[in-house]
Structure formats: C-alpha cells, structure tokens
C-alpha cells in the first residue's frame, strides 16, 4: 500500500513543510511584523535624522540621515534574526510538538534549512521594509547593490543560525530575550550603527575593534556609501567566520542531541 523511500536521500518536502509553517506564523502577525519596523524606523529618523542630523551634517562625506540607514537596518536584522529563529525552534520544544520533527525522516540539515531559512527570509524582508521606510526620509544611494544583498543575506543567515542555537539552548522564555536585548543591541549601538568609530578617541577605537558587530556594520555601510571603518575584505571574512562558527555549533548540537533528545 505504500511506496515510501523514493526520497531516501533528501527530504525536500519536509523543508518545504517547515518553511511554510514558519512563514505562516509570521503572516498571522503580519500587521505587527510590518508596522512595528516602519514606526521604529520613522522614530529613529525623527530623533537622529531631524533633531541631531543637522548638527552632525556629514560623516565621511555622507549626509548623516543616509549614513545611519545601514546601521538601522543592521540593528533590526541582528535582533530580529535571533528572535525569529530562537522562538521558532524553542516553541515546539516548549509545547512538546517537537516530537513530530524528531520522529520524522528528516536530517538535521533539512531541519536547519527549514527553520533558519524561514527566519532569515523574515528578517531580510524586514530589512527591506526598513530601507523603503528610510527612503521616505532621506535620499538613498546603494553603490554596490550586489554586495549590499550579499551582506544582508549572509548576516541574516548567520544570526538566524545564532538564534537557532539560542533557541536550542534556552530552557525558558527569558533566555530568548537575554542575548538579543542585553548583548546584541548594546554591541550594535557601540558598534557604530549611528556613528563612525573613527570619531572615537584612539583607545576606544581600539576597544571597538573587539566588537564583532563593527565589522558587520562597516561592510554593510561600505556597500551603500563606499565609506567604512575597517576594510571590506575583513568585514566579509568576519561575517563568513561567524556564519561557519554557528554552522559548526549547530552541527555539534545535532550530532550529540544536546537539549533535543534524552
């Protein structure tokens, strides 16, 4: 009665199912997922762009309003990738519905592609919504669109992976909030989202270089304005390193069954 096992090598249906499930979750709260970033971005422009901007006028030859756009996008991209992905995998663990994923003929790679792919998609869309909102306030120039998209996708994927790890590790809802709120957000603010680290006194500039997010923002900003705090090659390398680091940790987690299986 059954003709199983044509798919013994790769279960594409499962990826599609998980991806669709996760996207449906976002669509249920579509209004919230779109309206929130639009309002927040507008607020940032009112505060930084309109109030502080005129006094700052230009950073590295770029109008201040336009200068902060990549930083603003990164801020949301980083925190939302983590939140989306961590919640996506934590919730089934919390409710127990994870039993079905664990009992299905899916590999860990397929599970990761499904969950992380959906989380990354959501934050990329979010980034683009922020970009569109920003365009209402300031003229936007993107000198290297290919690299802009590349950094956007790579960063979304890397931080969604990171969020997935947090979701696997977390054993309570507060832990889901902890890292994005208490670590990523401050690091992003200090990482030059709203200023160039060149304006800092040399000792603080040196300290800033230990903040990995500096590299992400710098590379992303380069793709817009060709101005950067560190060289774009280093930025790219750091983003890739972070991506593969997360990938390695996820692989280890699935191999050992850490916090997934008894």
């Amino acid at each position: 009665m059954n003709s199983v096992a044509k798919h013994c090598i790769f279960n594409g249906h499962a990826i599609a199912a998980i991806y669709k499930f996760e996207m449906a979750r976002a669509l249920r709260t579509l209004l919230q997922s779109v309206v929130t970033p639009v309002i927040t971005t507008s607020l940032y422009f009112v505060v930084f762009g309109a109030a502080i901007g005129p006094r700052m006028s230009q950073v590295g030859g770029v109008q201040y309003g336009a200068f902060i756009v990549p930083g603003l996008m990164m801020l949301s991209l980083l925190t939302q990738s983590i939140m989306n992905a961590s919640f996506g995998i934590y919730f089934p663990k919390f409710t127990g519905t994870i039993y079905e994923i664990l009992s299905a003929p899916v590999s860990s790679v397929e599970i990761v592609i499904g969950y992380v792919g959906a989380a990354a998609t959501k934050s990329i869309v979010l980034g683009l919504v922020i970009l569109a909102t920003a365009a209402l306030f300031v003229p936007i120039q993107i000198l290297h669109p290919f690299w802009m998209i590349a950094f956007l996708v790579l960063t979304a994927a890397a931080f969604s992976l990171f969020g997935f790890i947090i979701g696997l590790w977390a054993d309570g809802f507060e832990k889901l909030q902890f890292i994005p709120m208490l670590i990523i957000t401050p690091l992003t603010f200090l990482g030059g989202a709203f200023y160039s680290i060149d304006i800092l006194p040399p000792p603080w500039r040196a300290v800033s270089l230990f903040n990995p997010i500096v590299y992400l923002i710098s590379g992303f900003r380069w793709s817009f304005h060709e101005t950067s705090d560190v060289s774009v090659e280093i930025s790219l390398a750091m983003t890739l390193v972070f991506f593969f680091l997360c990938l390695g940790v996820v692989a280890w987690i699935f191999k050992t069954g850490y916090r997934l299986k008894n």
């Binding site: 798919h7 249906h13 499962a14 499930f21 449906a24 127990g96 519905t97 079905e100 299905a104």
Partner: peptide, 24 residues
C-alpha cells in the same frame, strides 16, 4: 501527551505532517 500546535488549522497541521514525512 496531547501536544498540538494552537494557532494552526486542523487541515494545515495534518498536511504539514504528511510532507514532513516526505510524502507529496
């Protein structure tokens, strides 16, 4: 244990299961 999703419809969740197990 009665462990189900909450916000999904019956139709969606049953179709999800089929595809998760690799069936079209």
């Amino acid at each position: 244990e009665l462990t189900t999703d909450m916000f999904e419809t019956v139709w969606a969740t049953v179709n999800f299961s089929r595809r998760l197990f690799g069936r079209s």
